Computed example of a mutant assay.
Amino acid sequence: MKKIIIPIDFSEHSEYALKTAAKLAEKHNAELLALHMLEMSDIMLSTTDGIQNQKTMFFLQLAEQKFKDFLNKDYLNDVKVTPIIKHFKVFSEVNDVAKKYDADLVVMGSHGTNGFTEYFVGSNTERVVRNSNLPVLVVKNDMMDVNFNVVAFACDFSEESINSYLKAKEMFGKQGAKVYLIHVNLPNERFKSSLEIEKKVVNFFAKADSNLDKMEDVFYVSDYTIENGVLNCANKIGADLILVPTHGRKGLAHFFQGSIGEDVANHATLPVMTFKI
């Protein structure tokens, strides 16, 4: 991990993200790419009117100064920080920045009250996750520790989840973390027998790893909802982080086949990292 993008909107939660990213940067000797996206219209930026031009320059300079002041933190003294300002709030531009600077991770702060949909929908975080091709680490609080030694990967063991699994395995394998996979078996029409689940898991690892060594790191959980199963199991195994694959097409309420549940991150005391399928 060499470069980390932190979208900044000057909120309390974006500072949580900045602090977390700074700790990760110190740990991995990485560079921080602090990204602020202005809400400037085409008219303001392309106008030839003198007074309008002056207003535009004033707002640009004001935003740049506010950004500079926001990044003036003691905890950033020993971290390389590259400030980046985009004139439009276009969240797909996170991918452009990632490609230009060869970034590895996006870190964002967010808050929640009553479920995963309310936690993200309409927020900058939801839009970044939806558009980002990079893994996105979402934090809600001021994290004291970024040592993710035990990681819980929520998985339905579909073939389309293989790529996310391999990315997660590579990222956290390098850090010496133990990655466990959690499969939640639901009642009613989504219920599967133990034999059906095991066949699916065997097929998954055979294609992903060409071996079945990780079978011993799979937890099978029966619960009424996926979110409850994931959270209960993550707490039981002492996980430091929950990983979730996402399609990114309809936001974080649609992670993989079906929905992982709207309350996962909101009810979790743990940070959540998403991987694009």
Rank of each mutant, 00 (worst) to 15 (best):
L32A: 07
T274L: 09
S11K: 00
K200Q: 15
F67S: 07
A63M: 05
E198M: 07
A30T: 01
S41E: 12
S193Y: 04
K23A: 08
E12G: 01
F70T: 02
M144N: 12
N72I: 03
V202W: 02
A253I: 13
A177Y: 03
F88V: 10
A268C: 08
S110I: 06
E216A: 08
N235A: 08
Q65W: 01
I277W: 02
I5Y: 04
A34W: 05
G248Y: 05
M40Q: 10
G173V: 05
L62E: 14
R130N: 10
V202M: 11
L243C: 14
E216Y: 04
K80R: 08
D142A: 06
V221S: 09
Y119T: 15
E198W: 04
K167A: 11
M143D: 08
Y16M: 04
G176K: 11
A17H: 01
H183T: 12
K55R: 13
M108Q: 05
D156M: 05
T225E: 01
E93P: 14
V81W: 05
M143S: 04
V230D: 12
D145I: 01
H13E: 14
N133R: 10
D42S: 09
F58D: 12
F172M: 12
E227S: 13
V179P: 02
K100P: 13
N232P: 05
Y224I: 12
Y224F: 14
V201F: 08
V136S: 02
A177R: 09
F205L: 11
A34P: 05
T113P: 04
E64L: 00
K200H: 02
H87D: 15
I5N: 08
F204G: 06
N147M: 03
L270F: 00
L186E: 14
E262N: 15
M37Q: 08
K23N: 13
A154I: 01
N203Q: 07
F204Y: 07
D78F: 02
T125C: 14
M57A: 15
I237L: 07
G258V: 14
F88N: 06
T125K: 05
L252P: 06
I197P: 04
D9V: 04
V221E: 13
S14Y: 06
I277H: 10
L32Y: 00
E170S: 13
Y16Q: 04
S132Y: 02
F116W: 06
N211V: 07
D142V: 09
K99G: 06
K192S: 08
S259W: 11
D69F: 00
F91K: 09
V128T: 04
V202S: 06
N131E: 15
S41Q: 03
M273K: 00
I8A: 05
I4H: 02
Y16F: 14
A206W: 01
L71W: 00
